[in-house]
Simulated assay, not measured.
Amino acid sequence: MPTYNKLVRDKIPQIIENTGKKFSTKILIDQDYIKYLKEKSYEELDEYCAAESNEEAVEELADLLEIIQALAKHHGSSIQEVEAARKEKAEKRGGFEEKIFLIEVED
């Protein structure tokens, strides 16, 4: 039986059960939950970086957004508050739309 030891989406156990396979899960305590959410964010970011089509990229971005939403909730916030913070930061410092690559700054 393969061992995964990773955080999965809420409906994955039901999907596995529907295939007739045996599996084991546990509910994480908050400290472990945040640890594995962070690990999952790296996994999904790696998958986004490896995406070979726009469709794949969008799917992986959706996974990252799901993780960001869960992290925001864990920190007592919401995706709307994260978006408001993003907008405020963009107003003050800009976004990444102009594709500016900083090479060096003189001391």
Rank of each mutant, 00 (worst) to 15 (best):
M1G: 11
M1P: 06
P2R: 02
P2F: 00
T3K: 06
Y4A: 10
N5Y: 08
N5K: 09
N5P: 00
N5L: 05
V8M: 09
R9V: 03
R9H: 00
D10V: 04
D10P: 04
K11V: 01
I12H: 03
P13F: 02
P13E: 06
P13S: 02
P13H: 03
Q14E: 14
Q14T: 04
Q14C: 03
I15A: 07
I15M: 07
I15F: 00
I16T: 03
I16Q: 02
E17H: 10
E17I: 01
E17L: 03
E17Y: 03
N18D: 09
T19E: 01
T19K: 11
G20E: 03
G20A: 04
K21G: 04
K21V: 03
K22A: 02
K22D: 01
K26I: 00
K26M: 02
I27A: 06
I27G: 04
L28F: 09
L28Y: 08
I29W: 04
Q31W: 00
Q31C: 01
D32S: 08
D32K: 01
D32P: 00
Y33M: 00
K35N: 14
K35P: 01
K35D: 07
Y36M: 05
Y36I: 03
L37H: 01
E39Y: 08
K40A: 08
S41H: 11
Y42C: 07
E44I: 04
L45P: 02
L45R: 07
Y48K: 09
C49N: 13
A50V: 00
A51T: 11
E52L: 09
E52I: 05
S53R: 07
S53E: 11
A57R: 12
E59W: 06
E60K: 08
A62W: 08
A62M: 07
D63P: 08
L64A: 09
L64V: 13
L65C: 10
I67F: 11
I67N: 09
I68S: 14
I68F: 12
I68H: 11
Q69G: 14
Q69E: 15
Q69A: 15
A70C: 15
A70E: 15
L71D: 08
L71R: 07
A72K: 14
H74I: 08
H75N: 15
H75L: 14
H75P: 02
G76D: 11
G76I: 10
S77H: 12
S77F: 06
S78V: 07
I79W: 11
I79Y: 13
Q80G: 12
Q80P: 02
E81W: 07
E81G: 07
V82N: 06
V82G: 04
E83A: 15
A84T: 12
A84E: 15
A84S: 12
R86T: 13
R86I: 10
K87F: 11
E88C: 13
E88I: 05
E88D: 15
K89F: 06
E91K: 14
G94M: 08
G95Q: 04
G95F: 09
G95N: 11
G95R: 05
E97F: 03
E97P: 01
I100K: 14
I100N: 07
F101T: 15
L102I: 13
L102K: 05
I103D: 04
E104F: 02
E104D: 11
E104M: 05
E106V: 10
D107T: 02
D107K: 10
